[in-house]
Design a protein around this nucleic acid. Structure first.
Length: 314
RNA sequence: GGGAGAUUUCCCGAGCGGCCAAAGGGGGCAGACUGUAAAUCUGUUGCUUCUAGCUUCGGUGGUUCGAAUCCACCAUCUCCCA
């Protein structure tokens, strides 16, 4: 146990696995606060679609990194990290062990691994020009350019991955050195947190998928469509939110509502799959199969035992 | 009642005598992921004792060296005329 590191309890897992409730139970038990790690719950206007904790839940346990920007603004990992780092420090300074909870793997890993995001604010204008060029003329020109300025990254990035090619080039020209070096530096640097990581998973994938489908039905009942209608001038990062873009065909008269709901369920399931792939990578995570427990109380008891025995609270 | 057309691997859909276990897309499964990440991208997807063999293209029979592809009948569906 490294004493000069801030201890964190971290809950990860796919969407609809029950992270929110588990985190709240843990925070109540330890008298602590929750730091969300969710790239879409940061937006004030998304409530139903992001399955945010309820107002009641948020009044019982303090939540952070939720409702911090408008969908009109662009958000990114960097903004998240600077916000989350301060928050975690603050919670710890008040004698509590923060509970980090969320489904955005990139945000969690970047935070925990201490990724050194430096100067070089993204130039959206240039980025969009490069992406537009690749969309119209193929990736060859920029991929070859990348091979020259950052051959290591070119080896790792697939020739069809426009966004990563674009980012690597953008990185080089704003920072003056290859993005590959940043990755290497991160691997060398030490985390400033001491993390007890808990993952929620399912022995039977179909049970998770079933929960997702039901959750979407519930969102529809809770008038997710009104939420979509109420959003005006959405920005470039929020517009990709699952639960927003799927309803656009209906709103534009290009599809039935049922088709959109079906698509939303499907996209959510696929998202869950990607989350599982991401989180599985971290060998330090202690996994709990949700579908092996009779109820959430039993699950909580086991999780709590694990947290307690980990020594993170000492 | 008469006429025209359809039936393909989990789904949609191409194939119209050999190069077809069958294009392409979707989904599933697996993977990647360092300033858009709920984004983006990759691999794989009939079975097996897997550099080969076996069983598939509504059903049954036939033509042919050879059929998902041609013929006959049957079944189901769609459309058109009554």
């Amino acid at each position: 146990m490294n004493s000069n590191k801030i201890p964190i309890i971290c809950i990860v897992g796919p969407t609809a696995s029950g992270k929110t409730n588990l985190a709240i139970d843990i925070a109540k038990k330890t008298g602590s606060e929750i730091v969300s790690a969710d790239s879409m719950q940061v937006y004030k206007e998304f409530n139903i679609s992001t399955a945010k904790p309820t107002l009641k839940q948020m009044s019982e346990v303090r939540h952070h990194c939720i409702d911090i920007v408008s969908v009109r603004e662009n958000f990114s990992v960097v903004k998240y990290i600077s916000f989350a780092k301060k928050t975690i420090k603050d919670i710890f300074s008040r004698g509590k062990v923060p509970v980090l909870c969320g489904g955005t793997g990139l945000y969690i890993d970047s935070l925990i691994k201490n990724v050194p995001f430096e100067k070089g604010e993204t130039n959206i204008f240039i980025r969009n020009k490069i992406l537009k060029y690749m969309d119209e003329n193929g990736t060859n020109y920029f991929f070859n350019k990348l091979k020259k300025i950052d051959p290591d990254s070119a080896k790792k990035i697939n020739i069809n991955d426009c966004k990563r090619i674009c980012r690597a080039i953008e990185f080089y020209y704003t920072n003056g050195y290859p993005i590959y070096r940043q990755t290497q530096n991160t691997l060398k640097s030490d985390s400033c947190y001491n993390v007890c990581k808990i993952g929620l998973s399912f022995k039977d994938r179909s049970i998770l998928y079933d929960r997702i489908n039901k959750r979407v039905d519930l969102m529809v009942q809770n008038r997710i469509l009104d939420e979509v209608y109420s959003i005006k001038n959405i920005g470039d990062t929020a517009k990709f939110s699952i639960g927003y873009k799927e309803f656009l065909p209906f709103i534009n008269g290009q599809g039935s509502l049922n088709e959109c709901i079906g698509k939303l369920k499907m996209e959510t399931r696929r998202y869950a799959k990607r989350q599982i792939t991401w989180f599985k990578r971290d060998l330090g995570t202690r996994w709990f199969n949700v579908d092996e427990y009779e109820n959430t109380q039993d699950l909580f008891i086991d999780v709590w035992k694990y947290i307690f025995n980990s020594g993170i609270l000492n």
